[in-house]
Protein backbone atom coordinates (compact mmCIF):
# COMPACT_ATOMS: atom_id res chain seq x y z
CA UNK A 1 0.00 0.00 0.00
CA UNK A 2 1.14 3.52 -0.80
CA UNK A 3 0.21 6.89 0.55
CA UNK A 4 -0.01 9.88 -1.73
CA UNK A 5 -0.02 13.37 -0.30
CA UNK A 6 -1.27 15.91 -2.79
CA UNK A 7 -1.21 19.62 -2.19
CA UNK A 8 -3.32 21.69 -4.58
CA UNK A 9 -2.74 25.43 -4.52
CA UNK A 10 -3.51 28.43 -6.65
CA UNK A 11 -0.96 29.36 -9.30
CA UNK A 12 1.04 32.50 -8.75
CA UNK A 13 -0.91 35.49 -10.00
CA UNK A 14 -4.33 33.93 -9.35
CA UNK A 15 -6.29 35.80 -6.67
CA UNK A 16 -6.75 34.00 -3.38
CA UNK A 17 -9.78 35.67 -1.75
CA UNK A 18 -9.79 33.21 1.15
CA UNK A 19 -6.16 34.02 1.89
CA UNK A 20 -6.78 37.76 1.59
CA UNK A 21 -9.75 37.65 3.94
CA UNK A 22 -7.82 35.56 6.44
CA UNK A 23 -4.99 38.11 6.29
CA UNK A 24 -7.43 40.96 6.97
CA UNK A 25 -8.96 39.13 9.92
CA UNK A 26 -5.58 38.25 11.40
CA UNK A 27 -4.53 41.91 11.15
CA UNK A 28 -7.81 42.90 12.82
CA UNK A 29 -7.16 40.43 15.64
CA UNK A 30 -3.91 42.20 16.36
CA UNK A 31 -1.48 40.03 14.42
CA UNK A 32 -0.21 43.12 12.64
CA UNK A 33 3.06 41.41 11.70
CA UNK A 34 1.23 39.06 9.29
CA UNK A 35 1.94 40.21 5.74
CA UNK A 36 0.49 37.50 3.50
CA UNK A 37 -1.68 34.39 3.72
CA UNK A 38 -2.00 31.77 1.00
CA UNK A 39 -4.42 28.87 1.16
CA UNK A 40 -4.06 25.39 -0.28
CA UNK A 41 -5.81 22.02 -0.02
CA UNK A 42 -4.23 18.77 0.94
CA UNK A 43 -5.54 15.35 -0.05
CA UNK A 44 -4.19 12.16 1.50
CA UNK A 45 -4.83 9.17 -0.70
CA UNK A 46 -4.18 5.52 0.14
CA UNK A 47 -3.81 3.37 -2.94
CA UNK A 48 -2.56 0.03 -4.19
CA UNK A 49 0.30 -0.10 -6.65
CA UNK A 50 3.36 -2.01 -7.75
CA UNK A 51 6.00 0.70 -7.61
CA UNK A 52 6.51 4.27 -6.51
CA UNK A 53 6.80 5.28 -10.16
CA UNK A 54 3.49 3.69 -11.11
CA UNK A 55 1.72 5.19 -8.09
CA UNK A 56 3.09 8.64 -8.89
CA UNK A 57 1.80 8.36 -12.46
CA UNK A 58 -1.66 7.36 -11.22
CA UNK A 59 -1.70 10.27 -8.75
CA UNK A 60 -0.68 12.61 -11.54
CA UNK A 61 -3.72 11.41 -13.51
CA UNK A 62 -5.95 11.82 -10.43
CA UNK A 63 -4.84 15.45 -10.20
CA UNK A 64 -5.45 16.09 -13.89
CA UNK A 65 -8.83 14.37 -13.95
CA UNK A 66 -10.35 15.67 -10.74
CA UNK A 67 -8.37 17.34 -7.99
CA UNK A 68 -6.85 20.29 -9.83
CA UNK A 69 -8.06 22.69 -12.47
CA UNK A 70 -5.10 23.43 -14.73
CA UNK A 71 -6.29 26.98 -15.40
CA UNK A 72 -5.82 28.13 -11.80
CA UNK A 73 -4.15 25.33 -9.85
CA UNK A 74 -0.72 23.80 -9.46
CA UNK A 75 -0.06 20.69 -7.42
CA UNK A 76 2.67 18.82 -5.65
CA UNK A 77 2.68 15.07 -5.14
CA UNK A 78 4.54 13.17 -2.43
CA UNK A 79 4.47 9.37 -2.34
CA UNK A 80 5.45 7.12 0.55
CA UNK A 81 5.20 3.40 1.28
CA UNK A 82 2.83 2.39 4.07
Amino acid sequence: MFKGEIEVRLKEGVDDPEGKNTLKTLNLLGFSEVRAVCTSRKFEILLEGRSMKEVRERLEKICQRLLANPVIHEYEIKVSKQ
Partner: peptide, 22 residues
Protein backbone atom coordinates in the same frame (compact mmCIF):
# COMPACT_ATOMS: atom_id res chain seq x y z
CA UNK B 1 -16.97 24.54 -18.19
CA UNK B 2 -15.42 21.62 -16.27
CA UNK B 3 -16.50 19.27 -19.06
CA UNK B 4 -15.02 21.53 -21.73
CA UNK B 5 -18.32 22.28 -23.53
CA UNK B 6 -17.73 25.93 -22.73
CA UNK B 7 -16.09 27.97 -24.15
CA UNK B 8 -15.85 24.93 -26.46
CA UNK B 9 -13.40 22.88 -28.47
CA UNK B 10 -10.36 24.76 -29.66
CA UNK B 11 -11.32 27.82 -27.62
CA UNK B 12 -8.87 27.35 -24.76
CA UNK B 13 -9.75 26.57 -21.20
CA UNK B 14 -11.80 28.57 -18.74
CA UNK B 15 -12.47 28.24 -15.05
CA UNK B 16 -14.94 29.57 -12.50
CA UNK B 17 -12.84 30.64 -9.56
CA UNK B 18 -13.92 31.80 -6.07
CA UNK B 19 -15.53 35.24 -5.89
CA UNK B 20 -13.20 38.15 -5.21
CA UNK B 21 -15.26 38.99 -2.14
CA UNK B 22 -14.43 35.58 -0.70
Amino acid sequence: VEMGFLPGKGRGRACLAPNDSG
